[in-house]
Design a protein around this nucleic acid. Sequence first.
DNA 1: TTTACTATACCGTCCAGTTGGTATAGTAGC
DNA 2: GCTACTATACCAACTGGACGGTATAGTAAA
Lengths: 181, 181
Amino acid sequence: MGQPSTRDTILDAAQRIAAERGAGRITLDEVAKESGLSKGGLLYHFAGKEALIKGMLERLIERSSVVREEHSRSLAGKPHATLRALLATRNRDDVLDPHVAMAILAAAAEQPTLLDPLRQHIAYMREQIIAESGDQPAFWLLWAAADGLLFQQLLGVEPYLPEQRDAMHQQLQLLAEGMLK
Amino acid sequence: MGQPSTRDTILDAAQRIAAERGAGRITLDEVAKESGLSKGGLLYHFAGKEALIKGMLERLIERSSVVREEHSRSLAGKPHATLRALLATRNRDDVLDPHVAMAILAAAAEQPTLLDPLRQHIAYMREQIIAESGDQPAFWLLWAAADGLLFQQLLGVEPYLPEQRDAMHQQLQLLAEGMLK
DNA sequence: TTTACTATACCGTCCAGTTGGTATAGTAGC
DNA sequence: GCTACTATACCAACTGGACGGTATAGTAAA
């Protein structure tokens, strides 16, 4: 990997601030300082605060899509490939670090409509999965469990210990395999 | 039920604003207007914005505790009573409407440490469940699924249709019963 | 010459919190 | 039953700081 682009540096800084100070506490001055840019430089890359948060969310969607498509390819042809790829993606902290998902909380804090691109993406995934696996509540529940693990981690409200996280994800995979038969 | 206390009126107003404008967009002026009070009157009941959000969160914890203990009593003696009561509580929109949980997002937006009371409560529930059912990943996963359903609804990012929500909760109950044997 | 910035100054608005009141009900002493 | 006092539950106006955004002048590399 080369060095990250200035845009990515900025988005990383914004995520750090969101995680530390609170999802609604992102300010342009702070992001500029944290990313080592001037405010002018920051606004050169993002037209405003909304654009910044939109950028965070778009990066989240894009990154998770890339990883998921990777998994999808390796599962191609197998039953429930899309759903399984979606679940497998969540376990990949190495590629898609959980702080990236702070974008969701930041968007929810700023303005709920900012989540629209994510909603669109989810609707698309839903259709994919229905076409492949049908519309079964049990499958949506697996998705919900994966989301639950993510949000619990994001908010720091997990009932289990951090060391147990890996076991949790493995358990989800096992359960999914069982349910998906 | 009598009419709600002024405090509850204020907390309801704050939740409505959080849901509409964004979890980080709660302002004292707006809450005052929405609740039909002046700002001065609002600040008589809550010492400041933090106190307001803390109040929201405390009400959430208290209300869900009441409902959960109800379920707990009716399951007393049966295996995994606490875990089952916890899961059953989530389905009770009638008593614990999902907007109450906006408090979690509002707290996350304002300052992550505001979630500490919730974390404490979760730690307590964790201990209860471990004492009763042991420390098994599969059980935490059920909890995660329940949280996932909640947060998905809160953020409006459910992959399923609103009409399917009931089916989702039923599915979770069924799955839980199966796993809890 | 264009791109990618730095640095600084500034403006207007939003918003948390403060201040200084008012209205009402209750209570204690006489 | 009147007066003095207290507590509760508010209201309206204001203040000061934070913050989003704009503007401008300049720099350095390709």
